[in-house]
Simulated scan of single mutants.
Amino acid sequence: MTTAHHAPGETRPGGRTARTRKAVLTAVFEELGENGFGGLTMEKVASRSGIHLATVYRRWRCIEGLICELLTEVGSEVPLPDSGTLSGDLRALARSIAALYGEGRVRRLIEAVVSAAARDGQVASVLRTFFDERLALAGRMVQRAVDRGELPANTDPVQMMSALGAPFYYRILIARRPVDRDLADSAATAVRAAAHAGAYTKKDGGPANGTSPGG
Rank of each mutant, 00 (worst) to 15 (best):
S186G: 06
R19K: 01
A54N: 01
L71R: 01
G14A: 07
V28F: 03
R119G: 02
R48D: 01
D156L: 13
V114S: 04
R16F: 04
G165K: 02
K44R: 12
T189M: 06
L53G: 01
L109M: 04
G165R: 02
I172P: 01
G149T: 03
G149P: 00
E43N: 00
R177W: 10
V45T: 08
T72C: 13
A184R: 05
P178K: 04
G15T: 10
R12P: 04
L164I: 04
K202C: 14
R61Y: 15
V142T: 12
A92C: 07
C62A: 11
G9V: 05
H6E: 03
E133I: 10
A163W: 11
K202M: 14
H6W: 14
L80H: 07
V146F: 05
D204T: 01
R105D: 15
G206S: 08
A117I: 06
D156Q: 00
L173K: 04
G50S: 09
A116N: 13
E43W: 00
T85F: 05
R148Y: 00
A195H: 07
C62S: 09
L137C: 01
R95S: 08
H52E: 09
G149N: 05
T211S: 06
S125Q: 04
L109H: 03
Q159T: 03
L109F: 06
H6R: 08
P79F: 12
V126Y: 11
L25G: 03
T11P: 12
V179C: 12
P157F: 14
G205I: 11
G206D: 09
Y200P: 05
F168A: 06
A188H: 07
L100Y: 14
M1V: 03
A136S: 10
Y200I: 12
F168P: 00
R61C: 13
A4F: 10
R119C: 00
G9W: 11
G205R: 05
R192V: 10
A197Y: 04
T155N: 02
G50E: 08
G88M: 07
Q122I: 02
S83C: 07
A116L: 15
G210V: 12
A4Q: 11
R177F: 08
G210P: 05
K203A: 00
T201V: 12
H52I: 01
G149Y: 03
L32V: 01
N35P: 00
R21T: 07
S49I: 06
A92H: 09
G75F: 09
R177Y: 09
P178L: 04
P207V: 12
V113E: 15
N154C: 02
R16P: 03
E43R: 13
H52R: 02
